[in-house]
Write a protein that binds this DNA or RNA. Structure first.
Lengths: 121, 121
DNA sequence: ATAGCATTTAGAGTCTAGTCTAAGTCAATA
DNA sequence: TATTGACTTAGACTAGACTCTAAATGCTAT
């Protein structure tokens, strides 16, 4: 699969794909005889995972750490699990924070709708 | 209330408070005779709102727009309501995205815990 | 009244995560 | 064969949101 196809499939830019490869989140992707990337199924699986985690706000730094551990083999399984568990906690907290904000936002909108808005921002 | 007290109360830095003031999210905050900020209750209310919305990822640009509309008076009520409704939608989508990622993360952790991990990242 | 810490300003610097540019290579088409 | 368009690289640039610096001034305790 070419970079263009992958980019379209996952709705991201060629640049981002090359950037992820440069920082080591994926690849190095195999290149054909004339130096053009040809993404494998395995590459696609990784990109999907990375994209999903990024969309949840997990930093590239953390994802890189996870990938590096994976590359080191089975001996890092427990460490990887712990890393993911930490990110799970952070993510749960973030979702809670956002849900709280959403509730406040909804409440404020309700005040607007019912014209009960006070004088404050 | 001094800038330090406010910063502590909301767990943010003096710099961030001055920055928010500079870009017009709050204030201008009243200063005492020797030029030192003295935050009013109203300032605190705003800061709390801004902080809550920022923690949900709403951009400074959008918040600034909301504040500016507020400053223009009652005639902007409907526009403000619409702005908030848009942010509500965006926020709901973001929470959904993050919840989906969280589910995948939990599933992956479960694979680690039960040692059913396949060969992929 | 002098030390030592907090506050002020303007403006520069930092960090993250891309995004863009320039210069070059390649394959397919007019 | 010349052009077009996609791809390549290294490296510069950007946006957003702070965060830090320097130099000046103010407050408090000794």
């Amino acid at each position: 699969m070419t970079i263009k196809e992958v980019a379209e499939k996952f709705n991201m830019t060629n640049d981002t794909l090359r950037y992820y490869e440069k920082v080591g989140l994926i690849g190095p992707v195999k290149k054909n005889s004339s130096g053009i990337r040809d993404y494998s199924d395995n590459d696609l699986r990784r990109i999907e995972f990375i994209k999903c985690m990024r969309s949840a706000g997990i930093s590239i730094e953390v994802l890189k750490k996870y990938v590096d551990l994976y590359e080191k083999g089975d001996s890092t399984k427990l460490e990887r699990q712990h890393l993911l568990e930490e990110e799970q906690e952070k993510l749960e907290e973030k979702i809670k924070t956002m849900t709280d904000a959403l509730d406040k936002l909804k409440y404020k909108i309700e005040l607007y709708k019912t014209d009960k808005l006070d004088k404050y921002l």
